[in-house]
Nucleic acid binder design. Structure first.
Length: 592
RNA sequence: GGAGACGUAGUUCAGUCGGUUAGAACGCCGGCCUGUCACGCCGGAGGUCGCGAGUUCGAGUCUCGUCGUCUCCGCCA
């Protein structure tokens, strides 16, 4: 017989009754009745109840075994009597009566329980991650991650994509996030950088004649973390295709996303062809370029209605070029005064001077501002917003961009407070038509608003003949439930158009050539039109697993301060190592 | 770099208006228990209330500082 096991702990069924088996695993839970001991034995595959009878020579030893110790037992599979069957267990129809017992590995007393999902400090979980990962929820998340990456590979290969490896040691690039640097031993004072994304490599692969690229690509950025952004490293489903239009790419990605969510989650996908929202519309309707469209609630522009309103906070804004925007909260008129006060307090905390509101109750408009409005204004407001009896209206007034931003936050908060977003659904959308350029508010300079390598809509003609601020780019974002999963673009593969775009943004030809020598050179040897996208794998898995924090779907994450508490990274190194790398450490004064 | 929340037993938490010996559950240790499946019952150990100042007759509780963790802003093409 195998030294450790003939079956896993999730395998045995009623049909196995009468066979002699060997199981190994962790003591998940122990129930000691004095005369008989039950052990729920756990491995990666499941739980099996092991019974130890009092006449067993190892009975006393089993009485002492602690949870999470590793044991091996041999025994007969016995069908449970009808009244002792456990329907909640896959193996609940049987149990294994132990005839031999071996303690393989002792477990010390635990820093937190493994057999229940009790909250405990994340610091403890991270410093004992190997225990944390034994727990059902984390174990499941890591398996889900594996299933997701496997499905991505399977699907994309079926679709004709090819997976490539691109360098991890590459060169530092001038734009973008802070790089992680790796000192060069052979070239004193020179550094490699870890890739922030394989952006240039995948474009070079397209120029190399490969047609459909993908990679589950590790990306490294030395920026501070967030709940949905791990410090240091993360993964993208990096994709690039040649000879495609924006529509081709959208269709391709919709197939992938729909399949992921259909096969790996129980959530309902609101629309399998994702709605497209122009960037400018998104800002006017939702006040953000990553709207949660699980609930509708668009802002209505009521600027013209309040031009001559008695309410000076509104009419003064309209006269000084500002905007008045309204949100309709369906059915919220009956909310308590505290609800409206809380919403106003929230708006103030986000920088608003106030948050006017109206409640449509008993066929009247009620609220602090109602008495300042004429019947005509009320009528126009009802028509503009589509508000009905029982709804509540919230208003923001001020400079247009700031008001959109603020009311976008109010919209999001209303969504939370009124539970407007169904938790079991996913609503994707595309944000399209990003502007190619924008004005830097500090300097007044025209700058690239996103990726400088996106193709401007209208090409050279648009760059030459339009106001730069009116030029749109083939640049798009995919958004799901208010989370930005990725940006992408149809790339600019034409050196002449590239030079023109950089010229508008104030960069001389030399900058393009020196900062992006690889692409610049490659595009002079016959570059195919191409484009791509790179959805964040970690965020997709967060959505699939319904986890609010990205660390919950990563086996060994860095903590918020970018430390690995288990391995002790980052750490200092031997002086000899530094010497070899020609590095001298100069500590900031406060750490000495 | 900035802001906020939190910090009490191994873990999750309670701790009244500032009041005398800081509690509960789970876990741990010991004892009892032959059908449980979050087994049950009895007993025990376990605390620098993050740390340091201050106010006070008296501080887990109030004030200030500091450290730690998380969240947000900045940052993330």
């Amino acid at each position: 017989m195998h030294p450790y096991r003939t079956h896993t702990c999730g395998a045995l069924r009623k049909e196995d009754t009468g066979t002699t088996v060997k199981l190994s695993g962790w003591v998940h839970r122990k129930r000691d009745h004095g005369g008989v001991i039950f052990i729920d034995l756990r491995d990666h595959y499941g739980l099996t109840q092991v019974v130890v009878n009092p006449d067993a020579p190892f009975f006393a030893e089993v009485e002492k075994v602690r949870n999470e110790s590793v044991i091996t037992v041999e025994g007969e599979v016995v069908a449970r009597t009808e009244d002792t069957v456990n329907p909640n267990m896959d193996t609940g129809a049987i149990e294994v009566v132990a005839s031999s017992y071996l303690l393989e590995s002792v477990c010390d007393s635990l820093p937190f329980p493994v057999n229940q999902e009790l909250d405990c400090p994340e610091e403890t979980r991270l410093s004992h991650r190997f225990l944390d990962l034994r727990r059902e929820r984390m174990h499941g998340n890591i398996l889900l991650r594996s299933r997701a990456t496997a499905l991505v590979r399977q699907h994309l290969v079926e679709r004709g994509f090819v997976e490539y490896h691109t360098p991890i040691l590459t060169s530092s690039s001038p734009e973008g996030a802070r790089d992680y640097l790796v000192p060069s031993r052979l070239y004193p004072g020179h550094f490699y950088a870890l890739p922030q994304a394989p952006q240039q490599f995948k474009q070079l692969l397209m120029v190399s004649g490969f047609d459909k690229y993908f990679q589950i690509a590790p990306c490294f950025r030395d920026e501070d973390s967030r709940a949905d952004r791990s410090p240091g490293e993360f993964y993208q489903i990096d994709m690039e295709m040649s000879y495609i239009t924006q529509d081709d790419l959208f269709a391709e990605l919709e197939m992938l996303m729909v399949r992921l969510f259909k096969e790996l989650s129980k959530k309902r996908i609101v629309a399998e062809v994702f709605p497209r929202i122009a960037y400018r519309d998104a800002m006017e309707w939702y006040g953000t370029d990553k709207p949660d469209i699980r609930f509708d609630m668009k802002m209505a522009d009521c600027t013209d209605i309040f031009q001559d309103c008695e309410l000076k906070v509104f009419s003064n804004q309209t006269k000084s070029g500002g905007a008045v925007k309204a949100l309709t909260a369906k059915g919220a008129a009956g909310q308590s005064r505290k609800f409206f006060d809380d919403m106003e307090r929230y708006a103030r905390s986000e920088g608003a001077k106030g948050l006017a509101w109206l409640a449509l109750r008993e066929n009247e408009m009620k609220g602090p501002i109602a008495k300042f409005m004429s019947d005509g204004e009320k009528q126009a407001l009802m028509e503009r917003t589509g508000a009905e009896e029982g709804d509540a209206l919230f208003f923001g007034a001020g400079p247009r961009a700031a008001t959109n931003d603020l009311m976008g936050k109010v919209r999001q908060m209303l969504g939370i407070k009124l539970a407007l977003a169904p938790p079991d659904t996913v609503a994707f959308c595309w944000i399209v038509d990003f502007p190619m350029f924008e004005t830097n508010p500090d300097t007044g300079q025209t700058e690239f608003s996103h990726n400088p390598f996106s193709m401007p809509q209208g090409g050279m003609d648009a760059l030459t003949n339009k106001d730069p601020l009116d030029v749109l780019a083939y640049q798009y974002d995919i958004v799901c439930n208010g989370i930005e999963l990725s940006s992408g673009a149809i790339r600019n593969h034409r050196p002449d158009i590239m030079l023109k775009a950089f010229e508008i943004a104030g960069y001389p030809e030399e900058t393009v050539k020196s900062n992006f020598p690889a692409l610049w050179k490659a595009f002079h040897y016959g570059a195919p039109p191409h484009g791509g996208i790179a959805p964040g794998l970690d965020r997709i898995i967060m959505l699939l697993a319904d986890e609010p924090n990205i660390r919950e779907i990563i086996a060994f994450p860095l903590n918020q301060r970018a430390q690995d508490l288990l391995m002790g990274a980052p750490n200092t190194v031997e002086p000899r190592q530094l010497e070899e790398l020609h590095i001298e450490v100069k500590l900031p004064p406060e750490t000495e």
